[in-house]
Amino acid sequence: MQDAAERAVVRAIDKMRNNLSEQLTVDDMARAAMFSKFHFTRIFQRVTGVSPGRFLSAIRLQEAKRLLMTTNLNVTDISLRVGYNSVGTFSTRFTKSVGLPPTTYRRMGGYTGRISTQQISTGTATVSGRITMDSNDSPPGLIFMGLFQHRIPEGLPIRCAILDTPGHFRFTNVPDGTWYLLCHAMSGEVFRLQPKNVMVATVGPLVVRVRQRYEVDAQLKPVSKLDPPVLLALLDARKAAFERQYGTSSTPAIAA
Rank of each mutant, 00 (worst) to 15 (best):
D3F: 11
A4I: 14
E6H: 08
E6M: 12
A8F: 01
V10L: 02
R11P: 10
D14F: 07
N18M: 11
E22N: 12
D28A: 12
R31G: 12
S36N: 15
S36K: 15
K37Q: 13
K37Y: 12
F38L: 07
I43L: 14
Q45K: 13
R46G: 04
G53V: 12
G53S: 15
F55Y: 15
L56E: 09
A58W: 09
L67C: 06
L68P: 00
M69N: 13
N74F: 11
V75W: 09
T76P: 01
S79R: 01
S79E: 05
Y84I: 02
Y84E: 00
F90Q: 03
S91L: 07
V98C: 03
V98K: 01
G99A: 02
P101K: 02
T104C: 04
R106L: 06
S116T: 06
T117Y: 12
Q119M: 11
T124L: 10
V127D: 13
S128G: 03
G129N: 02
G129W: 08
D134G: 07
D137S: 10
P140C: 00
G141S: 05
I143Y: 00
F144T: 01
F144E: 10
L147R: 02
Q149H: 10
H150I: 09
H150T: 15
H150G: 15
I152E: 14
E154Q: 11
G155Y: 07
P157G: 13
A161Q: 09
I162A: 02
L163P: 00
D164G: 08
G167Y: 13
G167S: 08
F169P: 01
R170Q: 10
T172Y: 09
T172V: 13
N173M: 14
P175K: 05
L182G: 06
H184L: 07
H184F: 14
A185S: 09
V190K: 01
Q194I: 04
P195A: 05
P195I: 06
K196F: 05
V198P: 01
V198C: 02
M199G: 00
V200A: 00
V200I: 07
A201M: 11
A201S: 12
T202S: 05
V208P: 00
R211T: 10
R213Q: 14
V216L: 11
P222I: 11
P222G: 06
P229E: 14
P229I: 11
L235K: 01
A237E: 02
R238N: 12
A240D: 04
A240Y: 01
Q245H: 04
Y246Q: 04
T248K: 07
T248P: 01
S249K: 09
P252Y: 06
A253I: 05
A255G: 03
